[in-house]
Design a binder for these strands. Structure first.
Lengths: 232, 232
DNA sequence: CAATTAAATGTTATTTTGACACGACTAATC
DNA sequence: GATTAGTCGTGTCAAAATAACATTTAATTG
């Protein structure tokens, strides 16, 4: 068979929007780009899709390079493909968001990429169209988290209710009512109360909870629903 | 500046999942592929991204080629990029869904591509990974339409409430209650009742409505909301 | 042991949802 | 011109979900 002649072949990259939560703030992991163009500017972590590699695998590889972490929750977002977005050569970039437990990252830390966590409201200017990518990722995180319990991916194995609530407040940039939030959260049946408390952030201490992984899988698509009981 | 040497350049295509609604059924527009491989098999309409073209523009161009329509509601979906998905040469395909008023299409009909509308539950086997693309598009349509009034894009300028309801029933594959649906729909403030009726489908006739385009734009992000009043 | 600080909890009013049935309108037919 | 047939359009009520609201409890600190 013949090839598709006369068509343009294009560089295909992936860029990762990596979210983390330190218990107080939702953060984004950025690197200082190590090569021209735009060397030493802040950037998303990215890389090119290799000849025998699925884009998903490229994204996982790139994420592992930076964070040392595997089996991270990732989701494909938009492709950015304006002809002039990379001044060197045309490149389309597939974006992914990744949700990681920031503490796990710290354990695996490698400083090869001069990475830093930034609060979402203090993100520096980024190269190319990476600002737009981040903006879109924040948006998609809101959509997804309104329907599915993905924010637990940002939390450590044991977490407290005040922590989750802060996380939701950060993601949606709202103030929530403790009592109503707790009630709703409990009604999901996703939480298992532990006997010990987190004493780091208050004198009284807040009880730890774990995620009930069985119900997590069951309820993933039914966390909160809309058009009553749609089958997604 | 130097190029990114040693990296693989890949063909980048777009494929369009084109939805239409004829007043009774939600349908998908497919073509008979006109070249090898898989010549004469059913396929999504697609094309390659040109060297100076945004992917969005490629999708619009491809859509116009097939349907003759411009300014159609389109949205980028997933990229499919498995190395072996196209047996001829590696190609990553960016998928888009398009929502069109089927009647407008019929006016613009060109038969160059041997296109046909298929009911969603009667879709033939498609080439490559196009089945997966369609599956994903159906899913995304549900998500999106649960939060935003995009299904109006599928309707003609004047439409009836029974029509919209049928559309929602098709998209979510449920039976809806006429009274509750009407109440909810009216509460959106999106509809403007006309004085004339559609007499085609019943003796009594159903009043036509038009979309209130001002409130449509205002309410687009607040059609139905979830985490109470999030700013998307 | 008093003061401080954040955690945990319950009630009520309001809004939204879901379930449910019948009369009205018009074209077609006799 | 009366009858029939078929879809359109509408209202009520009970149940569930949501939003608003304040006090008590647990533990540390001085």
């Amino acid at each position: 068979m013949t090839k598709y002649i006369k068509q343009t072949r294009i560089l295909v990259a992936v860029d990762c929007i990596i979210f983390g939560f330190d218990g107080f703030n939702l953060k984004l992991l950025l690197i200082k780009r190590g090569f021209e163009p735009e060397k030493n500017k802040w950037s998303l972590m990215g890389g090119f899709v290799q000849s025998d590699e699925k884009p998903e695998d490229a994204a996982s590889r790139v994420l592992k390079q930076l964070t040392g972490l595997k089996n991270v929750y990732m989701e494909q977002l938009l492709v950015f493909g304006e002809p002039e977005r990379d001044p060197i050569e045309r490149t389309v970039s597939i974006t992914y968001f990744a949700l990681i437990d920031i503490k796990k990252y710290e354990k695996q830390l490698s400083d090869d990429y001069r990475a830093e966590w930034f609060q979402l409201d203090r993100i520096p200017q980024l190269i190319f169209d990476h600002d737009k990518m981040v903006q879109h990722a924040k948006n998609r995180l809101r959509y997804k988290a309104a329907l599915h319990p993905i924010l637990f991916e940002l939390l450590p194995e044991k977490f407290t209710i005040p922590q989750i609530m802060t996380l939701y407040e950060q993601v949606y940039d709202v103030q929530l009512d403790k009592r109503n939030f707790t009630r709703k959260l409990r009604s999901t049946g996703l939480l298992i109360k532990q006997l010990d408390k987190d004493k780091e952030n208050s004198k009284k201490g807040a009880f730890y909870y774990k995620l009930d992984k069985t119900t997590y899988k069951e309820k993933f698509t039914k966390f909160l629903n809309f058009v009553s009981n749609p089958e997604y």
